[in-house]
Computed example of a mutant assay.
Amino acid sequence: MGIKSFLASRKKQQKFTDDVPIKVSDYMSRKLITFKSEDLIEKVIDSLIKHRISGGPVVNDKHELIGIISEGDCIKQISESRYHNLPMENNTVGKCMITTVDTIDGNLNIFDAANKFLESRHRRFPIVENGKLVGQISQKDILKAARALKGHTWK
């Protein structure tokens, strides 16, 4: 009588190779809705609603990242305008945007990027190359990447 193993045969585990997309640049959005510092907040609000986005990068004429404007920044302007009984038509992105912007490297592993999202509580990270905005990765993009990589070994 021999020994019987009750373990099922193991599938050979796949390893990530160069053809398996696991970098931020593989999943980032490249066609972005961007804003200029001189844009009016009302225009930003209309754009956020129209495009169903929660914020976007602010760039200068050279397409260099200079800030981020979000729904929260817009809501703050609405609230302050109402509280101080001031018109909103002169509020510009430049007065409301956040200018200290965290970015992510496009070559970063998608799972390391997921950890950055968890640590920072940001909804999006811009990707800058040679000083120019080239894309943006969002939490939803991370979910899409995880779903696409389903079935691969995540080591």
Rank of each mutant, 00 (worst) to 15 (best):
I75S: 06
R123A: 13
D102P: 04
I137Q: 09
D105W: 10
F16Q: 03
K150A: 15
K4M: 07
D61N: 10
K62T: 07
V58M: 02
F117M: 13
K12P: 02
Q139C: 10
K31W: 01
N130Y: 12
N109D: 15
K12Y: 02
G106L: 09
M88F: 09
F6W: 05
D26Y: 05
S25M: 08
L32G: 06
K116I: 12
T34K: 06
L133N: 12
P57K: 04
S138F: 03
D61W: 01
S138P: 00
L86E: 15
R30W: 01
T34P: 02
V134M: 05
N115L: 14
F6Q: 05
V20F: 04
N90S: 14
R147V: 12
M1Y: 04
P57F: 01
R123M: 09
D112G: 09
I78P: 05
K15M: 08
D102A: 13
I127T: 07
I49S: 07
K150Q: 15
V24P: 06
I49G: 01
N90H: 15
P21G: 03
D141F: 04
S54K: 05
K15Y: 08
R121V: 05
E80N: 12
R147Q: 14
E80P: 00
H51Q: 05
G67C: 06
D73H: 08
P57D: 06
N90L: 07
E89Y: 15
A148R: 13
K15D: 07
G135F: 11
D105K: 09
Y27V: 00
H122C: 11
L86I: 14
L143A: 11
S54E: 03
K50M: 03
L48C: 00
R82D: 08
V101F: 00
L40H: 11
I137M: 07
E42F: 04
C96K: 11
R124N: 08
